[in-house]
Design a protein around this nucleic acid. Structure first.
Length: 814
RNA sequence: GCCCGGGUGGUGAAAUCGGCAGACACAAAGGACUUAAAAUCCUUUGCCGCGGAAGCGGCGUGUGGGUUCAAGUCCCACCCCGGGCACCA
């Protein structure tokens, strides 16, 4: 009789049909011991199809959830859908489709694919962030923040295409020009924008990173620390000659202030407008626009002299006031003092524009430096600094700041790199910002009983002109809730990062119509036990959601300070030397692979190709191997499931049983610690190779144990096949991922003999099989007696012998 | 320019705490089965040298130094690749 062949189509279809309507299959129970709460980061884009990059994220999360189930933990593992404004509106322009229709269709398509892939989500807690019910709570949060002054409106510079008459996102700027008009340079325009005061939380966001140590990857904590960027220094006021105005600069090196030879303003600095004439003003405007067009790496330092001078309050030196493109308006005070002798950037600038270089610090160790030729940026001893000369930098920094404070021209100061969060978007597809602009009452919040403010459906999206909502009269024209006179509704919508900042809270109570969520439920589920997402979100999404958590805590809605105890970031999938993403157009669709090899092969191969935290170069070659392997497992089990085997003992029993228990141990440990599923899968492959080699050398008992455990080990990675094999083994239809995880016996897994490597001068010359725990003395003499070792030691003097018990002996000779 | 990662055979990779470099696969070559093909099973495969062969020796983890009995792993300098960025005073 011919052997049964692995037919992935038949197997996957069979179980898909049986499972697809079972609403309880993946549902966590809330009554007994608290289930684990796992969250997979929301979909990056509803592109309509799953691609290889997505598969990576889901395969990892799914393997973990299944493992946890098999270990007896319940896991709440919901799924969310997000809608990004830009892709939806591009599709609207290109395909003449309404963004809402387009998004919902794509979400439905993706949902079908997710079901087909057999991912283990609890679908009853699904959250879709582009529905009015979700908008309602985004708006409700916005109004709470507005009441507390955490939301405010202010001018901000935005990329502007004069041709389209519209605001451009950074990714719509190509080589400094609009993506639709490749010869139209982008300009900078100041527009009124809404901001959230995330900087109020900068200190706490930074401090609490300490509490995440151990649970979050170190590289993410480092990136966040750098992003928040706390720096201690001082603010000092320079008087402007011939003006009542002072310019306040921020510096971390007030100890170098006697070497300040210029004051440099950011081009956007408010004092610039006052100081310069019309021609210079035009040059400054050009500088602002030019900066927007260039990559930070390409920016050459440019400067414009204002014709004015400022006075250093420490030594009354008269220094020129410049405007330069390398000074940032959003950091510190938007103005710096240039100390070319002791700062790289200042040096480069001053050298270019012929500004004098005055050294005022020398190295404490007496090293020879020449700051006029190359800046000395370290701490040292002050010189040429009046009464402060002779002090160390460390002493001078606080002392000089305090002196400035006593004399009323400065103080110690801490600044943060992080800026307030600009949430205004001039797009259609996002949560409308719930305020009304009234000529008499100013900014009036939309009354709560009128929430949610819903997007109008009859909108014409062109990608040109003002925000699409601004051209919908029924939406824009309203009456003021305060005075009843005609007023205008806000036409900006919210950044979709708002949506992703709290969707996982909504999971716990997705249908609540009276509140964003129920307090008790959050208290029960939070903090998240495990958050899993791509490394590309290490900064923005993960800082915004931490901020949102703290904000909600201060509103009294929750009691936890952080959203997630543990975080795991999988690496990106690289294709043709760049990140795989829709905007780069280098995605690889899953369809072809799934059609040819099946879902299980796709997931197995994806996990086998590289460890999950590492970035992964995509290549199609190799899926074949994963498919062959699954076929090997299938044939082995189907042909042995009902075979009558001897009662034993048989020659291969011990060997196979040892390999089996070693494999279970290895995979169990890996799931508990580092999640290197690629090596887990190779361990299973080794086990299968061992089984093939000993197929006729083992007794029935060992065979049965091996087949059963092999099936269970495979269940997190290849659930459809594992389920089919579980049935083949006579277990009916019980879901395999609800079976207990296989146990291992450390005694059975133990190797009989230790293999000890014998080295001479660090080179392997021989090896030795000894019982475990052989003592050092004995190992030494065994090594020295070894023929091959002797060949390299005779005639030489033994200097030293290093013994690592059960592992290695290194004989050092001269 | 700054921040965060990474660099190991023809390819994806493994080596978990400084202790056998290349597990497990892909690709390639050879063999078995077959009328034949596919599928399957088995064998070989880092590079160089010596040998008919079993085998023996040397080299080898981006480059150059260093620490150590021992370095892919630790330290210093450099080169290259990927991701992010807001030139962070």
């Amino acid at each position: 009789m011919p052997e049964k062949q692995y037919d992935h189509r038949q197997i996957e279809l069979k179980w898909f049909e049986r499972w697809k309507d079972d609403a309880n299959l993946y549902r966590a129970e809330e009554n007994s011991a608290k289930p684990k709460f796992y969250v997979l980061e929301m979909l990056p884009y509803p592109s309509g199809t799953l691609h290889i990059g997505h598969l990576r994220n889901y395969s990892i999360g799914d393997a973990l959830a299944r493992y946890k189930w098999m270990r007896g933990f319940n896991v709440l593992h919901p799924m969310g859908w997000d809608a990004f404004g830009l892709p939806a509106e591009n599709a609207a322009i290109r395909n003449n489709r309404h963004p809402r229709e387009w998004t919902l269709e794509n979400i439905a398509a993706m949902k079908r694919q997710h079901r087909r892939m057999g991912f283990s989500y609890d679908w009853s807690r699904e959250v879709n962030t582009c529905e009015p019910e979700y908008y309602r709570w985004n708006q409700w949060f916005f109004l709470r923040m507005l009441e507390r002054g955490l939301a405010y409106r202010s001018k901000a510079l935005l990329n502007w295409c004069p041709e389209c008459g519209t605001v451009l996102a950074n990714e719509q700027v190509v080589n400094g020009c609009c993506w639709r008009h490749e010869s139209t340079p982008v300009e900078q325009r100041a527009l009124d924008q809404w901001f959230l005061r995330i900087t109020d939380y900068a200190e706490e966001l930074l401090d609490d990173l300490k509490r995440l140590e151990g649970g979050w990857p170190e590289r993410v904590l480092t990136m966040q620390r750098n992003w928040i960027g706390r720096s201690e220094g001082a603010e000092v006021d320079f008087a402007l000659e011939g003006s009542a105005r002072r310019v306040r600069v921020f510096t971390t090196r007030i100890d170098t202030i006697y070497g300040a030879t210029a004051v440099i303003l950011a081009p956007e600095h408010p004092a610039v407008a006052e100081l310069v004439d019309d021609t210079t003003r035009a040059r400054v405007k050009e500088m602002i626009d030019a900066r927007a067009r260039q990559d930070p790496g390409d920016l050459r330092k440019e400067g414009i002299f204002t014709g004015h001078y400022a006075v250093n309050p420490f030594n009354q030196a008269r220094v020129p006031v410049w405007v330069a493109n390398f000074v940032l308006t959003g950091y510190g005070t938007g103005a710096i003092m240039a100390v070319p002798a002791h700062d790289e950037r200042d040096f480069e600038f001053c050298e270019t524009f012929g500004i004098p270089i005055v050294p005022v610090i020398r190295p404490a160790d007496g090293a020879l430096v020449d700051p006029v030729r190359e800046p000395f940026t370290g701490y040292g001893i002050l010189e040429n600094s009046g009464a402060w000369s002779g002090m160390t930098s460390e002493e001078a920094r606080p002392a000089m700041a305090d002196y400035a404070k006593e004399h009323g021209f400065g103080q110690r100061a801490v600044t943060f790199r992080i800026k307030d969060w600009g949430i205004s978007r001039q797009r259609y597809w996002g949560t409308p910002i719930p305020v009304i602009h009234c000529e008499h009452d100013g900014i009036v919040p939309v009354p709560e009983d009128q929430l949610p403010v819903v997007l109008p459906l009859n909108v014409n999206i062109t990608g040109k002109g003002r925000s699409p909502l601004a051209d919908v009269p029924e939406f824009i024209n309203v009456t003021c809730p305060k005075c009843g006179r005609p007023a205008k509704r806000e036409s900006d919508t919210m950044d979709t990062f708002i949506d992703s900042s709290w969707y996982f809270y909504r999971y716990c109570d997705p249908h609540d119509g009276r509140a964003p969520f129920d307090r008790e439920r959050i208290a029960y589920w939070f903090e998240i036990d495990q958050y899993i997402g791509g490394i590309e979100h290490a900064i923005l999404h993960l800082i915004y959601s931490r901020f949102w958590t703290k904000m909600m805590r201060d509103l009294g809605l929750i009691t936890n300070d952080e959203p997630a105890r543990r975080l795991f970031n999988q690496g990106m999938v690289i294709k043709d030397g760049a990140k795989m993403s829709k905007s780069r157009g280098n995605v690889v669709s899953l369809d072809e692979m799934v059609e040819r090899y099946g879902v299980d092969t796709g997931r197995l191969f994806e996990l086998f190709a590289a460890p999950p935290e590492k970035e992964m170069d995509w290549t199609d070659a190799g899926a074949e191997g994963a498919y062959r392997f699954l076929g090997r497992v299938y044939r082995f089990i189907t042909r042995n499931a009902d075979r009558v085997l001897p009662p034993g003992p048989c020659a291969g029993d011990e060997k196979v049983r040892r390999k089996l228990h070693q494999t279970v141990r290895r995979i169990t440990e890996d799931f508990e610690t580092r999640w290197h599923f690629n090596t887990c899968i190779s361990a299973i492959m080794e086990l299968v190779n061992e089984l093939y080699a000993n197929e006729n050398e083992i007794c029935g008992e060992v065979m049965h144990e091996a087949m059963e455990k092999l099936t269970l080990l495979l269940a997190p990675f290849a659930p459809y096949l594992a389920q089919e094999l579980w049935e083949e083994l006579g277990n009916g239809e019980q879901p395999v991922f609800r079976q207990p995880w296989p146990a291992f016996d450390a005694e059975l897994a133990r190797e009989e003999q230790a293999e000890v490597v014998l080295q001479v001068n660090g080179k392997v010359r021989s090896r030795l099989s000894t019982p475990f725990g052989t003592d050092r003395q004995q190992l030494e003499s065994l090594a020295l007696a070894d023929d091959k070792v002797r060949a390299f030691t005779t005639g030489k003097q033994v200097v030293k012998i290093i013994v690592v018990p059960d592992k290695l002996v290194n004989v050092v000779v001269k």
